[in-house]
Design a protein around this nucleic acid. Structure first.
Lengths: 343, 343
DNA sequence: TTGTACGCGTTATCAT
DNA sequence: ATGATAACGCGTACAA
């Protein structure tokens, strides 16, 4: 279990530690021969530099952390991939970290800042109802991307945001349903206490109903089961079953995530009904699975690629001091597929 | 950008650094009053201990790394969750790390060992064709869980493995198809050069055919497109389309992952055919999505929960010196759902 | 080109 | 109960 250190290597090679250090870090001022010799010994000994010590010493590390809330959602997976591509292109290192739904992302970020020498942070998802005070501890630029519940209690100049307008997009997908002739539109919503995207999407739903003279009925709203993973297929399945069992009449179902919509499809199928003949179903996010389901799912597509590009681009600009924090809103796009029909 | 350190806290509080350290780490020998005072200042200053320095100094860290190859596969997601639960129960910290398909997991592991003070490593997925020499550098116990390509070049006493017998399980699911009357069974396989689970599952397929007097036909094997994400829905979709376009006759389709099976379902649907009426489809893994698809997918269920428990249990026993490395094989279970029928 | 010595922020040890 | 100080492993200024 004994760790071999840089000193051991130096001793074995009969050189000083700085020479070994130079060999490791490809410094110019070193004799190629000694360098080769040192590298050979390093391999022989299986020596790996201790990163803790390195980070402790190093001035800068050119790394960016990406904190993802909830590792399950495939939506974030593709977002992360896009971001990673961009980060690598800029020759930065990406530190990916998952945050549980019940963890505090700021605390995690603070840990990370002290551990790695971060140049910036990207938060993906999450709710973000933190005080300005706490946010102030974050002494590197950070961006909230596709995060909900932003801007009420927080000082807008302290950070950037990249989002879609959840309220508006939600409004539009519901309006699409209304224009397709649906008037009894059920919704698979977030939990009742949700203060995040769930709330915004619910507001959009209500507004669309209102503007088209349809009265809101609480009975048509099914909230997520908090004991089941949020936004999951299982959650969508459960909620839809409840809805079906309740015998409430509806012709369309709006799930606030594509994953939930998949569960809804199943529940409807099991009830002996068909999509879209008996019920139209729409989701939200635009993840891959919606393209493979049978039927494929009509949804609000979030421009993942663009948002990722903008996120990382903005972050680099802020790091370089070229820009100030800003709040960008992207437009979603309704993608009509097989799960909806006009009535 | 100025980092506030333990010294600053000590100075502000008018105490020594060791006292601050004691306050942070809940040492017994400290006056509750000073402790409270220090904690207040820490909060006020937004001080967070530097983990690099901590790890550098700390004797032991009670942490276990989990390295996952390929972040996309939901199969690993649930595996990780189970493992995390167990690790937390033992009061250890889990370090989760994703490894890209083209990264070398051993190198990543070596980095991690030096950085955190790991007590053990769990590798999830991946191919593992490393030399004993390189493995020897890993000076903490490690377990290969659900990893393929094990045991040929590697010294079995150096590590443990937790797997299902991919060859056997593959054999059984194909045999199930054969017993259901299918004789023309197509397969969505790994890439041709695959030396891992893909190869084993292909061998199982061949053996089942052989033992039931069915001749193997290369035309019925579609390999994954290497430019598309391995084991993905897209990959399954593409391969199935090719298969369908090739006009080869078959009555059953065996996809080596559930995700690929989902893609296959879609491709078949688009071709105007039906599952299971026209084609029976089976997958492999037993992930959630298979329960929600329409139709639900017959598959080989891997006992994720048990394997996770065994993995982490064994690792702790090895760390404690209670057990030696061993190689456990779990049995899968064929779960018959809607996507298959007898002919 | 190479070696020596110091300091990074923290914890452990030993005094007090 | 508290404080001073020596490590931890590494990078780097500076001396040689």
């Amino acid at each position: 279990m004994e760790q071999v250190t840089i000193k051991d290597i130096a001793r074995i090679c009969g050189v000083g530690v700085s020479t070994v250090s130079r060999a490791i870090n490809n410094h110019p001022d070193i004799n190629p021969e000694t360098k080769n010799m040192i590298n050979r010994v390093i391999r022989e000994q299986g020596y790996v530099p201790n990163n803790s010590a390195r980070n402790l010493k190093r001035t800068e590390a050119k790394s960016i952390a990406v904190l993802v809330k909830g590792m399950n959602n495939p939506f974030f997976t593709s977002m992360v991939k896009s971001i990673e591509k961009e980060i690598k292109q800029k020759k930065y290192a990406m530190v990916l970290h998952h945050v549980e739904y019940d963890e505090d992302e700021i605390d995690v970020a603070l840990e990370l800042i002290k551990e790695k020498r971060l140049k910036g942070i990207i938060f993906l998802g999450g709710y973000f109802k933190h005080s300005s005070e706490k946010l102030g501890y974050l002494n590197v630029p950070f961006i909230l991307s596709t995060a909900g519940g932003i801007g009420e209690t927080m000082n807008q100049a302290m950070y950037s945001t990249i989002t879609v307008d959840d309220r508006k997009e939600s409004y539009q997908i519901v309006e699409y349903l209304i224009q397709s002739g649906h008037r009894k539109i059920a919704m698979l919503s977030a939990s009742r206490q949700d203060e995040s995207i769930g709330k915004l999407r619910l507001e959009g739903y209500k507004k669309a109903l209102e503007e088209h003279g349809i009265s809101f009925r609480q009975e048509l709203i099914k909230s997520m089961d908090e004991t089941v993973e949020p936004y999951s297929m299982e959650n969508g399945y459960q909620a839809t079953r409840q809805l079906l069992d309740s015998k409430e009449e509806f012709t369309a179902l709006y799930a606030i995530s594509d994953m939930m919509a998949v569960g809804a499809l199943r529940a409807i199928h099991e009830a002996g009904k068909r999509v879209p003949e008996d019920y139209s179903v729409v989701g939200f996010d635009g993840i891959d699975i919606g393209k493979y389901c049978i039927p494929t799912i009509t949804t609000v597509n979030q421009p993942i690629e663009e948002m990722a590009k903008e996120t990382i681009g903005l972050l680099f600009d802020i790091i370089a001091g070229k820009k100030k924090h800003q709040h960008k809103v992207f437009s979603g796009e309704i993608v009509i597929r097989e799960s909806t029909k006009s009535i």
